[in-house]
Design a protein around this nucleic acid. Structure first.
Lengths: 231, 231
DNA sequence: ACCTGAACACCGTTCAAGT
DNA sequence: ACCTGAACACCGTTCAAGT
């Protein structure tokens, strides 16, 4: 997409580059890393590929980020920082659903980087504001500190589990590949498990958005009922 | 733990080893991979370390497994095959809870390999029998094919999300490290978010088993209520 | 049939040398 | 202050040569 910032054919200069040349910044490195991940996946992202995209030596990155692990942490944090906290309406169920949908949108903006966001410690600074917002919605609904934290963690576990399945699912396991669906359906029908052949049609396809809505709806209904009960 | 099967100081022999020497088998490779993962983690598991443990050259593994990816798939499948399917009692809620607990026990037998089981396509043969068992419990409770599959996927997403948090949590984020808990608590209290300082004590610690029981209990209650409603 | 030597194209990272 | 050369200790994998 974006071209390297240095002419790759130029003879590499030793030492500090002459002033006026574009400085290598942490932000440029972050953007390059995200671009590489978006196009080639995390598994094909290396310090060398990130640097090559910038027309720079891989070792130069170490002046700005804390190794590969630090870079990937920064990527996760940057994506999470894009989380738009929805304005609470005062209605518990819809408010929780809005959070979940916003989180899904945030992670799906970079599907191939999503596992980083979902898997790395979300305890970083970028995760604090959303966490606080969800907790205050739960507290406002009448839940105590202990129960609020349990509910927060339940909702997060479900959201992470659902999104992880969605982003790890190959292109064939979805709703847009009739041949793949037909193949899986036949395999399930011939699996020898009656319980599988009975639902082969449903099991062979997966509308990820529908499943997300169903699962979150199920849990959020349960949360809202508890709140009503407590009040 | 188990010593290498060949004396590491022995001069390597070219060509086929003389008969009578222990044959390199797929099972031995699988066991070695699990041993390496258990002690050093997936991130430090390579074809070379798995082979070294067996006193063999890494390239020999390619005669028995389909590359590193195939080996890790086989590890995940082997662990999943240890899943003990609980005998259904006919009571929906307890039956679903028994499945969830059994799955948790299965993955926690090899905590450092758990992410493989949770992350890689569970559609492999080893996952079919448990899937069929859960589906037949749901069908028996009166759910139709579509809803049964939705419920199965909801339960799986929650279970995977909760277990992933548990196995990825460092040793400090739990319940057995008072200093770590105190540190996090202070950080949360000084975070500037009132919603976080209010629940800092609860947020600073995490009893993974308790969270698992709470989250699954919440969702399974919702499922059981739906079943009662439908009947 | 199955193991290894040689080889290839990669990795992350340190550190001194350079400007 | 910040970039690169040289270097190190790793990777996964192919393929021909060997027994």
């Amino acid at each position: 997409m974006t071209p390297p910032t240095k002419d790759a054919t130029a003879k590499p200069t030793r030492g500090r580059p002459p002033k006026g040349s574009p400085a290598l910044t942490r932000e440029a490195i972050l953007a390059s890393a995200i671009a590489v991940i978006d196009s080639d996946g995390v598994e094909n992202t290396s310090m060398r590929t990130v640097a090559r995209r910038l027309g720079v030596d891989a070792k130069s990155l170490y002046n700005h980020v804390d190794g590969k692990d630090g870079l990937l942490d920064a990527v996760a944090e940057h994506i999470l920082a894009g989380f738009a906290i929805p304005e609470p309406t005062g209605s518990l169920g819809p408010d929780l659903m809005a959070f979940a949908r916003s989180f899904r949108r945030t992670t799906l903006r970079h599907p191939r980087a999503a596992a980083l966001v979902l898997t790395r410690q979300v305890a970083s600074a970028a995760g604090l504001a959303p966490t606080a917002a969800i907790l205050s919605v739960l507290r406002a609904a009448g839940f105590g500190p202990g129960e609020s934290v349990h509910l927060l963690r339940s909702l997060l576990a479900l959201t992470v589990g659902a999104l992880l399945r969605e982003v790890e699912a190959g292109p064939t396991f979805g709703v847009g590949d009739p041949d793949g669906i037909a193949d899986r359906r036949r395999a399930l029908e011939g699996s020898g498990h009656p319980a599988l052949s009975e639902v082969a049609a449903q099991l062979a396809r997966c509308d990820h958005e529908e499943e997300f809505e169903f699962a979150l709806g199920l849990m959020i209904d349960a949360v809202a009922r508890r709140a009503a009960h407590a009040a």
